[in-house]
Every structure is written in C-alpha cells, then in structure tokens.
Design a protein around this nucleic acid. Structure first.
Lengths: 379, 379
DNA sequence: ATGAAAGCGCTAACAG
DNA sequence: CTGTTAGCGCTTTCAT
C-alpha cells in the first residue's frame, strides 16, 4: 500500500522550489484596496433610502420589516460590502459575541485531547455566531477578571479544573455566565460538564473483574496532575478505589510520567511488588505506546497475560495494536455541550447545572479472561 | 524512582469524593456582586476630581500628567475597581488589541507542535497587551474577512500555509497587517516566518553523508500534507532532493501515515525496494515511536544498522531511546517572533519581511558512521 | 412598518 | 499640564 518512490504529488506541481524564496517589489500603499474607506450602517441606509435603524433591524431581525425594504436593504448591504463593526455593536448592545476559552498549558496535560475540546468549542461557538478568545490557564484569576470586567467576552469556558480551584469562587462572583469543563469539589452555583470519570474507572474495574482478574493496577496521569488535584484524575482514582473495594479485588494505583524510561521503571516496579497483577487501567494517553512496548519487552502478551483498559478517545484506542478496550472520552461532545449550556445561559434560559456524561465502555482486543479463568459473560 | 503504591498526594487530602457531586442552593441573583453597577471613566474622573480625558491620558500615558494628579487618578482607579471597557476603547481608538490566530485542524497536522506555536503566540501577545482570537483554518477566507472587516481584530497570524494558499491574495488586500507562520511560493508583499526547512533537510543529508551513508530515505508527513502542498513539507522535500543530488547519494522519499501498521508497511517496502538504505530522515513526529519499534522488529539496530535523523522539537528528540539526532523545530521562538513582527507592523515600523529561521542540527545518539565505514569528522 | 434621536464608554483633537 | 467637546458605529427606545 505504501508508495515507496520519489513520486510525490508535489513533483508534478511546477518548477522546483528555490531554497530561499526571493522577495521583490516594495510595499506599495497605493496599490491596495483603492476604496478602503469604511462602510458604515449610515452608508447602507443612504444607499437603500431608509433610516439607519431600519438597516439595523433588518440585520438583527428584531422587528418586522416589509419584505420590500428588507430586500432593498439587503441589496445595499451586498452592494457596498457592509460589515457591522464589532466594537460599535458590542458597545451599543452590551454584547461582544465572544466567548473566552481558558485552556491549560500545564505540566502533564495531554495536548491532543485539549485540542479536541478546543476545536469543538470553537466550532460550536461559531454555529451560535460567537467567536472564541484564547486564554491560557497561567493567567489564572486575573486573566478571567480582565476579560470579563473589560467586557471583552460575554461568557467563559474554563478547562482543567482542580478540585479546589482558586478560580471557582471568582467564577461565582463574575457578572457573566461560565461553564466549567471539569468538576470541582464544590459545584454550588456553578455549571459544569465532564465525563463521569468516577463511573469510568468503576466500569473498567467491573469489566476486568468480570473477566476474572483479581489484582488490578491503575496507571494514572503524571504525578503533577494529581498534586494539583485535577478533577478528572482525582475522580478516576476515587472511582477505581471504590470499585476495587466493592468488588473485593486488589487495587494498586500509581502515577506515571510520559517517557519510555519512566514507563519501564513504573511497570517493572509494579510487577515486582505485585506479581499477581493481570489487569491494567490506563488513564494517560501518551504512555500507551511505550506501555505496549514495555509489556512486550517484559514478555507479557496483551491480552493473554495482561489485560489492558484505557480511558481515552476512541480513535486513540483504535490506533494501537491490539485495539484497546476503552471507556470513551467524548471530547467533541463535551466541548459542544459546554458551549450550548453557555449560550442557553446567555439567553437567560438555563441557570446552573452539573452534567456528568455517562461513561461508556467498549470492549476491544486488549482485554480477555484472566489467565487460568474460563471466559464468561460480562454483566 | 517510580512510586508503586496507593499513596497518592490525593489520599492525604480530605474526605473521599462522592461519585456524583451534590448540588444544592438555587441560583440566587440577588446574592452576587451587590454593587454590580459598571464603573466608567466618568466615575473615576468624578472621584478624582479631574476630566475624563485626564483619566484616559493617565491610563494610556499619551501625554504628560503631573505626578500629583496621576497618583490621585490611579488611586481612584483602584478604589473603584475601574476597568476600561474594551469595546468602547476599540471603537474610539480604532484598535481592538486583539490578534487573530488561524490554526489548522486539518488532516495530518501534529497537534502538540501546533499547540506550542499557539502558546508562544498567546504568551507573546499578552506581553504586548494583546489578546488572541482563535480561528480554525476551515473557516478559510471568509473567516479572515469576517474578523478583519468587522474590526474584531487588529492583525492576523496565519499558520499552516500552503505553497499556493488561497488566503494569500486575500491577505495582501486586507486592510490590516498579517504574519504567516510558513512560507508560500510567492511571498511578495507578505510577512512570513518559518524554520528554513530546505536547509534543515540539507543538513540532515549532509550529516548522514558525512558519516558515510550512501542511500538515504526521507520518511515524510502523511500524504495529505503533501497533497495540500503545505509549505514546510514541500520545502523539506525540495531540500532533501537538492542535497542528495548535490552529494551524489541515493535519496528516496515517501510519505507516511501515523499508525503502526502504516509505518511497518512503509518501512518494509522501503527496505525491500532499497536494501542499501542505512540513513533515515524523519519529518513526522507521531511515527517516531512506532518507527523505532518497527526497526527493532526488523532487527535493525539504531544507530549501528540504521542512522536516524529527525526534524522535530528538542524535547521530542530527547524523549526517545536512543535520543535522536535532530534539527530543532523552535516553535516557541517562531511563534514569539511572529507576534513581534506583527506588533512592529501595527506600530508602523516594519513592513514586509521573510524570515527563515536557520536550521540547527544537534547530533545525539541515533546517528553514527554507516556500517563498514570508519567514523570521520563531520564538516 | 419606519424614522429620529439618544446614548453605549472611550479617545483624541482642539483649546486654553 | 488640564479641561471641553466631538465623535467612533451601532442599538434601541420613543415617536409616529
């Protein structure tokens, strides 16, 4: 399947590239956009022979307009290439139509997943005619205060929530709606949405236990994530502990750093201290590849000798060999719903709500009956 | 080093988590921000006993103010918790202090690198008192038109540039400055910055050739990236071809999809068709792990049997075993400089400029003399 | 169904 | 060094 030769599509496409592209003509101010004059609503009104307010109402649809004038106005809008000025609109209407997205760029966070959330947020926001302002989490409280008190944005989406997040009290007080992706310890007065990580861990444990595994380890996120008491990691850990206790099986938990050597050390120590382990639950996407390598290196076949459950996006689970049994992390869905909650709040509908997206387990090729146990149906 | 037990930091931190956090009190409008009334510049002026314009000038520093009144104004600002309204300021000054960042979310792009660019852009923008609006590349031309013509942003940073990018003509015409991260075929009238990928590929080839390798393959990005004629991939390919020709060694190029099976197929075919290959240049971060696995699987040791050069960020090169000889992709630096170019343009200084960041090769553990060749010094 | 007019909160001439 | 004033372009009463 893989083409091995030098016939890239590129090769068919014109002359070879210069190593350094040449640069010619000077910057020519006169040459660009001859009529760069800004088109205002007044220009449109004049062109259509109506009042400015009429143009405004045609555009917003906030009052009924005779189809005749509406057409005329719309023609003028097109003819003049009119675009409402965002600042003027925001100033007059007290709405910027911009959402802030607070994204973590901290130690231990897995970037592709974050990006999936971000993409869903941007895409959904655009569907509701909003744009997205990108804030990094290290701006902390002051960043939130800044963008909200200056009315730069209408609402906030906050990711990477810690159990006792310093931003939570602030969010309660800010004069604008917010939605957290992630669930803090005290959700009073807040709107939050996230995967039900507690249940996700429980389902992993139940699945493995049903398959006869009696000793199960949670290979978690890097320790920095736990130390910050990041909500999703803490809730997964709690669910894992609760489920292993409930099912009466041995549960061992350990964080893991995303580097081959760290994975090797962690797994070797784990298997040395607890040789009976036959089931692994992994909540740490970047270590999955190395982990599979390490298990191979140590002579443990997956799933014959070691069953593996992951908490990750479906495409990640299906990218590995063998395909991983997993609990899905539906980042698209969560990001989309977060924005929809926010839009609802902006429109005065919904107030607060804590939404736990149900965990859903998909059994693939990385889990099977524990060694020496006959296969049996999962409850 | 790896702690294998159940004593997470979390366990010391209070009572166990409920599976589902309870939610109590209702939304209480009265309870929040008792004096939510908005503080305007007029309020500050009154409080300080000066004119509104004086407050404005104190804040902007655009004219000299007696230290006495300045202090008084600043006290009032603090006392009242005043924050300038962003829309009003933008409307009056014709500056939103927001940059647009167009980020690709297309097939084949490696997310962590993108995020590194994005982070650098946001961080640097904040240093210059700007915020960043996130646009996805699939909004295409219309997205750029929308945010610029509505004056939502002052300037644009555009990533993921194709050689014949449809947005380039538009950027030339838009009434606001832009900087491309990536270099199109025709850079006339544009400001661009990127790593010198042509030279990066050349250096890889030179390094391997100096080590005695006579047959070298480029394992490139997924084919979709070439088909779009994405600038960085095309330039790397061109550099690779130029350098292998110049050095009189065999050069083979192939795209590669980021999945284990695809890597296996590609490498097997490659080695089958060109058994003499002893040097590999990889421009495809996500396949590096799988590639190392595949080589091991096929019994080729790195670097004894096969030398490996990567074009990637340093931390990636150092995360693998063996550490990879690489040409650095300095995303932070490029992102930062892109913003600085933009700020310079906004301040009327610099106009256009094409900046090729010099490629820099770091030899690590994945390259060595070709089999049967005695080590010799690299030119 | 449409117009007229009053701001939204700020900046930047223009006057001292 | 400071105050006065005229907008920036739009939305939204208030009229009709």
């Amino acid at each position: 399947m893989a083409q091995v030769n030098s016939h890239f599509a590129l090769d068919k496409a014109g002359p070879p590239l210069d190593p350094v592209p040449e640069k010619s003509k000077r910057f020519d101010l006169e040459a660009r956009t001859p009529e760069a004059a800004i088109v205002t609503i007044a220009d449109v009104a004049r062109h259509a022979g109506v009042a400015a307010s009429t143009v405004s109402y045609v555009l917003s649809g906030k009052r009924s307009i005779s189809s005749e004038t509406r057409d005329r106005v719309q023609d003028s809008v097109r003819a003049l290439g009119y675009r409402p000025n965002a600042s003027a609109r925001a100033l007059a209407s007290n709405r910027s139509n911009v959402l802030a997205l607070v994204i973590p760029l901290r130690a231990g966070m897995h970037v592709p997943v974050l990006m999936q959330f971000a993409t869903a947020v941007v895409t959904t926001a655009r569907r509701y005619d909003h744009d997205v302002l990108l804030l990094t989490a290290d701006e902390g409280r002051s960043g939130l205060e800044r963008v909200s008190q200056s009315a730069l944005v209408d609402a906030l989406v906050v990711m990477d929530v810690e159990l006792h997040d310093e931003r939570v009290p602030l969010l309660r007080e800010l004069p604008m709606p917010s939605v957290l992706i992630g669930i803090p310890a005290d959700t009073d007065g807040l709107s939050c949405i996230d995967l039900d990580f507690f249940a996700a861990a429980e389902q992993c444990v139940d699945h493995l236990t049903d398959l006869g595994h009696r000793s199960i380890a949670l290979l978690g996120t890097p320790s920095a994530v736990y130390e910050r008491q990041t909500g999703f990691a803490a809730r997964t850990l709690a669910g894992f502990q609760a489920a292993t206790a409930r099912r009466g099986v041995v549960g061992i938990e350990t964080p893991c750093e995303p580097a081959f050597d760290a994975v090797l050390d962690t797994v070797e120590d784990l298997l040395h201290d607890h040789p009976g382990i036959t089931g692994l639950v992994v909540q740490n996407e970047p270590i999955i590849g190395p982990l599979l390598d390490v298990l191979r290196l140590l002579g443990r076949r997956v799933p014959e000798d070691m069953s593996l459950m992951a908490i990750c996006a479906d495409d990640v689970a299906e990218r590995h060999v063998p395909n991983l049994s997993s609990v899905t992390l539906p980042a698209d869905d969560i990001g989309q719903r977060a924005v929809e909650m926010l839009i609802a709040k902006l429109e005065g509908g919904q107030t607060e709500a804590v939404t736990l997206v149900p965990a859903q387990l998909v059994a693939r090729a990385s889990t099977s009956a524990a060694p020496g146990v006959h296969a049996r149906t999962t409850a």
